[in-house]
């Protein structure tokens, strides 16, 4: 009995590097979500599809004999295209952003099955292996130390590039678009184009994380993106809640908190699994956690804001005064 408890604990610690690696990959994905959700103020659901597109493209191209670098670049480009599609649905066709994302997601479901099928000479395939035993992959759960190092470098580059981009004239225009559409148009910013570019960049990064995820877990799977948006949001929210205090203004630090949020998410994930939670409940749990965290700012405003407080105070004071007058009159 004691022995098996020890064993479980050992297993738990042994699983942590894996949790960190997964957290880093999903952290990259969450950085993509951050661009749309936090900077552009759009909830983009296409990511559920584009993460799988990145994985499918990378796996299919490597299966067909293309080099790792080319496969990953094309995976990134496929994400850009997914973002372009959502962007056109939203700006050119005037479809609400959420619905535009869902449409892209649905389109990508078919496309992803087709891409994976292409590599296997079939009409469609729901799964495509990409084992590091047969392929020269960048990351793999079979080589944990190297994977962690590679991921860290990858993240460094992505955060660096984004820090630069959002500091440029165009990057600033994109941030302004997310902050205030009226002001942005009055200042001559083509807000439609800015939204499209932001969605493309976001989905490109998400597809790249998909390519890394396929290599890490050794396959691309049609279901791998289910609920990705919720994991991404969870990472953004957890990162902000736990580490927001050290990233008040610096943008690179803010992106880092998103990443840390992803890592915390997967450590918690392994922990609850080792505590015996049925893995089936994890999606439910994630959704509930995200829902609560999303509600907190609303509740704060609704019930604890200065105005609400002042109102209550004023009401109490008025009641007191009324009582006093009553007693005086009596």
């Amino acid at each position: 009995m004691g022995c098996s408890v020890m064993g479980t604990i050992m297993n738990y610690f042994a699983s942590l590097p894996g949790a960190v690696a997964q957290g880093m990959i999903w952290g990259i994905m969450a950085i993509g979500v951050y661009i749309t959700y936090k900077i552009l103020d759009i909830a983009d659901l296409s990511v559920d599809g584009s993460i799988c597109t990145g994985a499918a493209v990378c796996a299919a191209m490597m299966t067909m004999g293309y080099s790792l670098a080319v496969s990953m670049i094309v995976a990134f480009v496929s994400g850009l295209l997914a973002g372009l599609l959502t962007g056109l649905f939203h700006t050119f066709m005037g479809i609400p952003a959420i619905l535009a994302g869902i449409l892209t997601q649905l389109i990508l479901w078919s496309v992803n099955l087709k891409i994976m099928g292409l590599a296997l000479d079939k009409a469609s395939a729901a799964n495509l292996p990409l084992s590091s035993r047969n392929f020269d992959t960048l990351v793999s759960m079979l080589e944990m130390n190297r994977s962690l190092l590679v991921l860290a470098l990858f993240i460094l580059v992505i955060v660096g590039v984004l820090y630069w981009f959002f500091g440029t004239e165009y990057g600033s225009a994109l941030r302004a678009t997310g902050a205030n559409l009226t002001m942005s148009r009055a200042q001559g910013i083509n807000t439609g184009l800015a939204k499209i570019i932001g969605l493309m960049l976001s989905n490109g990064i998400v597809a790249l994380s998909g390519a890394l995820l396929a290599q890490y877990q050794g396959n691309a799977d049609i279901n791998m993106g289910k609920g990705a948006i919720v994991i991404g949001l969870a990472a953004v929210i957890i990162g902000e809640a736990l580490f927001g205090w050290f990233a008040k203004t610096n943008f690179a630090l803010k992106l880092t908190t998103v990443l840390l949020g992803g890592i915390v998410y997967f450590i918690v994930y392994s922990t609850v699994i080792y505590m015996g939670l049925e893995s089936n409940y994890l999606k439910l749990l994630s959704a509930v956690v995200v829902a609560i965290f999303l509600a907190i700012p609303y509740w704060k405003k609704q019930y604890f804001s200065g105005a609400a407080h002042a109102e209550k105070k004023a009401q109490k004071a008025a009641e007191k005064k009324a009582k006093k007058e009553e007693t005086e009159n009596a």
Partner: peptide
């Protein structure tokens, strides 16, 4: 900085 670029192309130069 955004306002001082009104009517101009916004490039990949540093924003300010």
């Amino acid at each position: 900085a955004i306002a001082s670029r009104r009517g101009e192309r916004r490039t990949l130069k540093w924003g300010i």
